[in-house]
């Protein structure tokens, strides 16, 4: 049970963070103030983006694990495969689609 809690908590966090990262890409490219802040924070917007995503992934993963997201969302390995695969695919489509038409 504890194994599933960690596995599904962090799996859900991977999918959520991947989609959020793609949304942040669009947001920072469309908003110069946001991109300027991200650049100022570490010296490069890409470094800030990476740090934000890594922190979000770890914090959300621990929260979902602690609050037993696997039970409340009735997660299992099969659903987790779809969630991780879907999140990754959606993120890739948003990022590539944005730069293709931007």
């Amino acid at each position: 049970m504890e194994n599933n809690r960690v596995k599904f908590g962090f799996g859900l966090s991977v999918a959520t963070t991947a989609i959020l990262s793609a949304i942040l890409v669009v947001a920072k490219e469309m908003n110069t103030v946001l991109k300027g802040w991200m650049k100022e924070f570490t010296g490069h917007h890409w470094v800030t983006h990476g740090i934000l995503m890594l922190v979000f992934f770890l914090v959300l993963g621990f929260i979902l694990t602690k609050y037993k997201a696997d039970e409340s969302l009735k997660l299992n390995d099969q659903r987790m495969s779809l969630i991780v695969g879907g999140g990754t695919l959606l993120s890739a489509i948003i990022i590539a689609g944005f730069y293709l038409f931007h």
Partner: peptide
């Protein structure tokens, strides 16, 4: 632009991979 941002997703999957393996 696509490569530098898609790499974040690759990194997340790579960090998560051992978790999924060790917990299964």
């Amino acid at each position: 632009e696509t490569k530098e941002h898609l790499f974040f997703v690759l990194l997340l999957l790579s960090i998560y991979l051992p978790v999924a393996v060790f917990k299964s």
